[in-house]
């Protein structure tokens, strides 16, 4: 158990090291790293939030369009759709 945790921690440290290298954070000053990480993590969070809100309805509408179901009336969609407003 302890060795498994140690290996997992080593792996995480290695992944963080790769992140620092790929994004050139490795050469930055600490304040530059903080600023870059703040912008980077904010952007990723915004992308995930947008995906969560909009992907389901987009996939649903695309499926309806591609299967030619948009002529069919669907009654109870608003209650299940997270991005629709009543």
């Amino acid at each position: 158990m302890a060795t498994f945790l140690r290996h997992a921690l080593d792996k995480l440290c290695w992944l963080y090291y790769q992140y620092l290298l790929v994004t050139c954070c490795y050469v930055m000053e600490p304040w530059e790293q903080t600023l870059f990480n703040f912008i980077f993590i904010s952007t990723i969070d915004m992308v995930f939030y947008t995906t969560y809100v909009f992907v389901s309805i987009h996939v649903y509408l695309a499926t309806r369009f591609l299967l030619k179901l948009h002529f069919v009336d669907v009654i109870h969609i608003e209650s299940r759709c997270s991005s629709c407003t009543s």
């Binding site: 952007t43 915004m46 992308v47 939030y49 947008t50 995906t51």
Partner: peptide, 8 residues
């Protein structure tokens, strides 16, 4: 495009 779309 996705990153730009995410900006509220």
């Amino acid at each position: 495009h996705v990153v730009l779309l995410s900006i509220p």
